[in-house]
């Protein structure tokens, strides 16, 4: 199975996100991308929607639940949310959704900044391997991988998905 081209998925996602936000009567959401791939996807979505606005960036390393197992990534980028979280409608964007643990960490971090009015979850690819009750509102494509396979997003321009074999640990 070949991996989809993000350039094909993004316009569809933008349209679906617009419908979703309208259905939920959300006029002015703020976009937050999860570092690094989620930030690229969020930027591409904003461009597809014709919006120019500051994007929030979240590095969830300090909030991960596997810190004692895998250690701290040395180059944690500072999270930067250039707007109030309190009372805000947010669109949280990640590249590849797998276990849901990254999204769990991102939600915890967001709530340390304030209480958002709502969080809409958008992801480019859903690998359908959730370990937590988390579900995306807008998805580019869902696909299943072999157990020893992973997908990585390359970017920021152009965006491309790459299949990777998991090193046998």
């Amino acid at each position: 199975m070949t991996l989809p081209d993000p350039a094909v998925l993004l316009p569809r996602m933008a349209a679906e996100l617009t419908r979703h936000l309208q259905a939920h009567r959300i006029d002015t959401p703020r976009f937050v991308g999860i570092h690094t791939g989620g930030v690229w996807v969020a930027q591409a979505l904003l461009a597809a929607l014709g919006r120019e606005e500051p994007l929030g960036v979240l590095d969830v390393s300090f909030y991960r639940d596997d810190f004692t197992q895998s250690g701290l990534h040395p180059q944690v980028r500072p999270s930067a949310l250039p707007f109030e979280i309190e009372g805000q409608h947010l669109v949280l964007v990640d590249d590849v959704l797998m276990t849901g643990r990254t999204v769990r960490a991102a939600l915890n971090e967001l709530f340390d900044y304030g209480r958002p009015a709502s969080v809409t979850l958008v992801c480019l690819l859903d690998l359908d391997a959730r370990e937590l009750p988390i579900r995306p509102d807008v998805v580019g494509q869902t696909l299943s991988l072999a157990p020893d396979e992973r997908v990585k997003l390359l970017g920021p321009a152009p965006l491309a998905l790459e299949r990777q074999a998991l090193a046998s640990a």
């Binding site: 300090f62 909030y63 810190f67 701290l72 180059q75 500072p78 930067a80 971090e109 340390d112 900044y113």
Partner: peptide, 18 residues
């Protein structure tokens, strides 16, 4: 690593759950 923790000190909630 310290550079990234500096940013935590500027947050409203100056705490991470590590």
């Amino acid at each position: 690593t310290a550079d990234s923790f500096l940013e935590v000190g500027t947050r409203a909630v100056k705490k991470v759950p590590l």
